[in-house]
Amino acid sequence: MGRKLTISCFRFNPNIPGDKPRMQDYELEEYEGMTLFVALNDIREKLDPTLMFDFVCRAAICGSCAMLIHGRPRLACKTMTRTLPSKFTVMPLPVFKLIGDLSVDTGTWFRDLQVRAEAWIHTNKKFDFNALEVRMENETAEKIYDPEQCIECGCCVANCITANIRPDFIGSTGINRVYRFLIDPRDERSDADYYDVIGNEDGTFGCVGLMACDDMCPKEIPLQENLAYVRRKMAAAGLKLKFQGVKIS
């Protein structure tokens, strides 16, 4: 016999006129290896088919099931219920637009981020689809893989006080995204070009350094390092400093 879990879910559907935000408790039995993702599906199957939440991959790759679990933003599919007390709350991520119950629209926010951060390889090289791809050093590829792991779940935006109170702040994920292109040798942008993108209060200089992003990233991306690197790099670009022989990274 497993524990009896009481999951207190945030319920509110903005599309139903007159609907009021409230917490609703669901009771279910825990079994071995249960993740919150499984528990929520159990609730929807057996207790309440109207409960709204997002999921796709159930393997911490799609980033859809991020929500406030027991107060902290996490992925439901990566959270084992045995790590939680027998009664806990589940709420939708703040900052993002609420679709209903636990479901939020991270897509619009991240789409805007991609545009603002100009998150694509900028190159003047003409693509020749007959030629072999240019090889990349393994070391560089591994370095890029680090920030590239971001699944855009939105946890680092939700747990950031700055992102919560300043809607234009690009967030840890945004700075990390720029870092990804900054270290990519295929991107031909100069540091000054990157400075135009995030060398401001809505970008890298808006970060207060609360490090909730670094502590809670479900993909464990080393955000402290990446953010500090971008900050130093952008400060050097803004001041037009050249650190010859001095390692900024």
């Binding site: 107060g71 703040p94 006080i161 919560n164 109170i165 207060v208 609360l210 490090m211 909730a212 809670m216």
Partner: peptide
């Protein structure tokens, strides 16, 4: 300019800090 100065911002800050109970956020 870093501090939450509007009442709305203060409430968000306090609620998020309390809910997440994240050490560095409380320290700030």
């Amino acid at each position: 300019r870093r501090a939450p100065v509007r009442l709305r911002d203060m409430r968000i800050t306090y609620r998020m800090a309390k809910m997440m109970n994240h050490y560095d956020t409380w320290v700030w």
